Simulated scan of single mutants.
Amino acid sequence: MKGSLPLHALFVRRCQSLGVLCCLFLSSVAGAQADLLQERVRALVEQRLPADSRLSDLIVGQPAARIRACAEPRPYLVHPRRLAVGRVAVGVRCADQEEVLGFLQVMVGAQGSYVVSARKIEAGEIIQADMLVSKRGPLQELPKGSALRADQVIGRQAARSIERGAVLALKAVRERWLVERNRPVVLRAQGTGFSLTREGKALDNGGLGNTVRVVSADGRMLSAQVIGQNELLLRY
Rank of each mutant, 00 (worst) to 15 (best):
M1W: 02
S4M: 14
L5I: 03
F11E: 14
C15V: 04
C15D: 07
V20K: 13
L21K: 08
L24Y: 08
S28K: 04
A34I: 00
D35K: 10
D35Y: 10
Q38E: 11
V41M: 12
L44I: 05
E46V: 13
E46H: 11
A51V: 14
L58M: 13
G61D: 12
Q62F: 04
R68I: 05
P73W: 05
R74T: 13
P75R: 12
L77V: 10
L83R: 05
V85Y: 06
G86Q: 11
V88G: 04
G91Q: 11
A95H: 13
A95G: 06
E98N: 14
V100I: 15
L104K: 08
V106D: 06
V108K: 04
G109C: 07
Q111P: 00
V116Y: 07
S117L: 07
S117H: 05
K120W: 02
E122G: 06
A123C: 07
G124C: 05
I126Y: 01
K135G: 00
R136M: 10
R136F: 04
P138W: 09
E141F: 11
E141L: 14
L142A: 09
L142I: 12
K144F: 13
G145C: 13
A147T: 08
A147S: 06
L148T: 00
L148F: 04
R149E: 14
Q152Y: 03
V153H: 07
R156G: 00
R160V: 01
R174D: 07
L178P: 01
V179E: 04
E180A: 12
R181S: 15
P184G: 10
V185Y: 03
A189W: 08
T192F: 13
S195R: 15
D204E: 13
N205W: 08
G207E: 09
T211K: 14
V212E: 04
V215E: 14
R220D: 08
M221S: 11
L222W: 09
A224D: 13
Q229P: 05
N230M: 13
N230Y: 11
L232N: 05
L233W: 02
R235K: 14
Y236F: 15
